[in-house]
């Protein structure tokens, strides 16, 4: 596990004439090879600024970023492209291009003027296609692929570029649930098998916890928190991501929950059933009140309030006497 990318006391922002607008300060982080790291944080916190700095497009005001031996801004453009590749969220698709040609573009930094691939380049393209499980689609045109497959092809392209680090900026933001999982698990696998340091900017907390080896949490006005997802959950630091007055992270369920006052409902039954009934009740909380004991029972599912029995939550809401509404 080598540190491939490090940030020390980093202060970032934009300059306009004499004015300096600092967006991020006192950032410290390490990106390790062989690991999938997810960067999470609310919109506008400066994730894109950090990514720009890592890509060498802005120079830090203070502190330093080190990619392998030197700072990204100090690399000549072509050298940098051999260390670092990117995948962006917005898909720009030349529909006529085949998957193989797209992945071949990843070899651009290594090619001469005409852009013709050598045997070695073809080998890298093949390996990237196999690693992303896209080799069966290699002759397919991009216009005929699904969004998920297209994004996988973009990942294969980044892989063929053969840098130590791959940065992905919200790569799954326009994909469906299954594809989101699939892409993130694929990245996890690639990080391990190809020994790459992969940084993914994402808003999918669930999937990030599921797949990442390391999380970076950013929030306005607090330093970047880095750690194992499981550690961050157990020591509750994961709550830094959330506005604390309204949401909290439920470590038991691994989900973000709305904070609510003690409901005052007396519900008895097994934990799972109570959980879902409470969830349904909370959505209607202001209009619902009873002092009666509520019981949820399994096999078959029923809700018992005093003498009355309901067979689904909907029935319960529908038929319960007005005193309950």
């Amino acid at each position: 596990m080598d540190q491939v990318l490090t940030g020390k006391n980093l202060s970032l922002g934009y300059e306009k004439g004499q004015d300096r607008k600092v967006i991020l300060s006192d950032l410290n982080f390490q990106l390790y090879s062989g690991q999938l790291t997810c960067l999470l944080g609310p919109n506008g916190v400066g994730k894109s600024t950090l990514v720009k700095a890592i890509l060498g497009r802005i120079r830090p005001f203070e502190g330093e970023i080190k990619l392998l031996e030197k700072s990204p801004v100090d690399y000549p453009r072509e050298k940098l492209s051999k260390k670092l590749s990117v995948v962006l969220s917005e898909p720009i698709i030349p529909a006529q291009m085949t998957v193989e040609q797209l992945v071949g573009l990843g070899r651009t930094p290594y090619l001469k003027w005409s852009g013709t691939l050598s045997e070695l380049d073809r080998k890298y393209v093949n390996e990237a296609l196999v690693a992303t499980k896209m080799d069966f689609l290699r002759k397919e045109r991009l216009g005929e692929l699904s969004d998920g497959q297209r994004q996988k092809a973009m990942i294969a392209r980044a892989l063929a570029q053969d840098g130590k680090v791959i940065i992905l900026d919200e790569p799954t933001s326009h994909l469906d649930l299954v594809n989101r999982h699939e892409i993130m698990f694929l990245l996890q696998e690639i990080a391990k098998s190809q020994d790459k340091a992969i940084l993914v900017v994402t808003h999918d907390l669930d999937i990030a916890i599921e797949t990442a080896h390391q999380l970076w949490l950013m929030n306005c006005g607090s330093p970047l928190i880095a750690g194992l997802p499981e550690d961050l959950i157990l020591n509750a630091q994961i709550n830094e991501l959330l506005p604390k007055d309204r949401f909290f992270f439920d470590p038991k369920r691994g989900k973000v929950n709305l904070r609510s006052d003690d409901s005052g409902w007396q519900i008895q039954g097994s934990e799972d059933l109570v959980f879902w009934l409470e969830k349904a009740l909370k959505k209607r909380k202001s209009s619902f009140w009873t002092d009666e004991r509520i019981q949820v029972l399994d096999n078959p599912f029923r809700i018992q309030v005093g003498e009355r029995i309901y067979h689904s939550i909907a029935d319960f809401f529908e038929e319960s006497p007005s005193s309950l509404r």
Partner: peptide, 18 residues
């Protein structure tokens, strides 16, 4: 020619490819 091919993916990608 190589640069024009890279540019098919947009300026940001092209830049990231050197």
């Amino acid at each position: 020619t190589r640069s024009f091919n890279a540019l098919l993916l947009g300026e940001t990608y092209a830049e990231s490819m050197g």
